[in-house]
Design a protein around this nucleic acid. Structure first.
Length: 429
DNA sequence: TCTGGGGTCCTAGGACCC
DNA sequence: TCTGGGGTCCTAGGACCC
């Protein structure tokens, strides 16, 4: 008698990445710029490119490049100021479209997401078919092209979508983008080979510093990294980075697709056109930025306990200061006054190039009432209803009536002193 | 012609408590 | 009284990502 084979169902992870997102969105709004090289970004002396159209890329222009340098590479360049709100709106529709393929969608940024499509295969046929259909729908609805990678883990899926990206053509050429291509599916059996010959810098978590450290150890490729002793990596790079990189280099990446990632901090920073040397000059900006940060917190229904102040000096050095409060707050005046005290201890006459204000330790307000939405034991999310317990309880009743008794978990009053969830469990009905 | 504005996570030391 | 160990929180800085 034979036992059925143990089938370890491999995950199928999809990574979708919009092509030249901000720039493509602007080209849709400004068709008259179709034949011009376009970047979105800051235009001043200190501006940088946030996104470059493919026509701009054909001149060597890249994102994160100083706008001044981009202009030298491409004198004809059109620089469009970013319109963040609009990109957020487009992004939200893109994520909705992704959600038609699986509920497991994890946005990475406005123009990128991971989808766990392990369970979606049967609905769309092959991975290629699913990826192609996602790409087609995104173009049909938003007029935007994307690149899609599918593999058994996030690392390979992301590299796969990258490898499916269009390549800029010779100077002056338009976007080499169309309905063909744009999809790369990596078979599980091919994943190690797919990784092997790449430079270590392709791995998630290897930037300039770690890359240089690895090269000094004689490690340049993923294959070399995979064969390097873990202990040596740990002693040179620290336990966290060392182990993580060793796993990734060997094609092991179990990071799940996480649906509701709650923000841990909110911040706002600004580089001045001209450096400031007087604290009094900074106060109005500090107050305004504290107000912007706390308004965003209030809109999300959270308060923060730690106020952060950041300064970049004329010589590009950076100093940060932070203070944790006894009580969480989303009050702009409170944040501004704490930040102001921190600022008072710093030598502003050194020359301030950048000012930043932030709030971390975010959570629901101390007096919030939370609804936990769950279905058959699976947590779907937490709906915070600030300060209005009666409304929260009514909302809970509505959900129960529509979806049944198991649809909603206990109603909870948040108490931070108790370390988070102080489940009162008294969903009084 | 050294560079923006969001974020995340890690490390390391000190304070404090048990 | 002295010494040590473990855990957690706070702060500053740094690496990295898009």
């Amino acid at each position: 008698m034979s036992h059925p084979a143990v089938v370890v169902s491999a995950r199928r992870i999809l990574h979708v990445d919009m092509d030249a997102f901000f720039a493509s969105v602007e080209l849709l709004r400004h068709p008259e710029l179709r034949d011009r090289p376009v970047v979105v970004g800051g235009g001043g002396d200190r501006g940088v490119v946030a996104a470059a159209s493919y026509r701009a890329r054909s001149y060597g222009v890249r994102s994160a490049m100083a706008t001044a340098r981009a202009r030298r590479l491409c004198p004809d360049l059109v620089v469009v100021a970013p319109d963040h709100r609009h990109y957020v709106a487009v992004s939200s529709r893109i994520m909705d479209c992704c959600a038609e393929f699986t509920p497991l969608v994890e946005p990475l940024s406005l123009d990128e997401a991971f989808l766990d499509v392990t369970g979606s295969g049967g609905l769309f046929g092959s991975d290629e078919a699913l990826a192609g259909e996602l790409r087609r729908r995104l173009h049909e609805r938003e007029g935007l092209w994307s690149s899609v990678g599918v593999a058994s883990c996030k690392l390979v899926a992301k590299l796969a979508s990258e490898s499916a990206k269009p390549v800029p053509g010779p100077p002056g050429s338009a976007a080499p983008v169309d309905g063909s291509g744009g999809v790369r599916v990596v078979d599980p059996a091919d994943e190690l080979r797919f990784l092997q010959d790449r430079p270590v810098g392709d791995l998630w978590g290897v930037g300039p510093v770690t890359g240089a450290r690895l090269r000094s150890l004689g490690v340049a490729t993923v294959a070399e990294l995979a064969g390097f002793p873990v202990e040596a990596l740990v002693s040179h790079l620290g336990p966290s980075v060392g182990r993580q990189l060793h796993e990734l280099a060997n094609g092991r990446d179990e990071r799940p697709v996480v649906v509701d990632v709650e923000a841990r901090s909110i911040s706002q920073e600004e580089t001045f056109a001209h450096d400031r040397t007087d604290a009094a000059d900074l106060r109005p900006d500090l107050l305004r930025m504290a107000e912007q940060v706390t308004r965003r917190a209030r809109r999300r229904g959270v308060e923060g306990r730690t106020v952060h102040l950041k300064l970049r000096w004329s010589d590009l050095g950076t100093t940060t200061r932070s203070r944790t409060l006894g009580e969480p707050t989303a009050d702009g005046l409170v944040v501004a006054s704490v930040a102001s005290e921190l600022l008072a201890q710093l030598p502003v006459d050194r020359g301030v190039r950048l000012l930043g204000v932030g709030l971390s330790g975010l959570g629901p307000p101390a007096d919030a009432t939370q609804l936990r939405l769950s279905l058959e034991g699976h947590e779907l999310g937490t709906n915070v209803t600030s300060s209005n317990r009666a409304a929260a309880l009514r909302a809970a009743d509505e959900v129960r009536e529509r979806f049944g008794e198991t649809a909603i978990g206990p109603v909870v009053s948040r108490s931070r002193e108790a370390g988070g969830d102080d489940a009162t469990g008294d969903d009084s009905r």
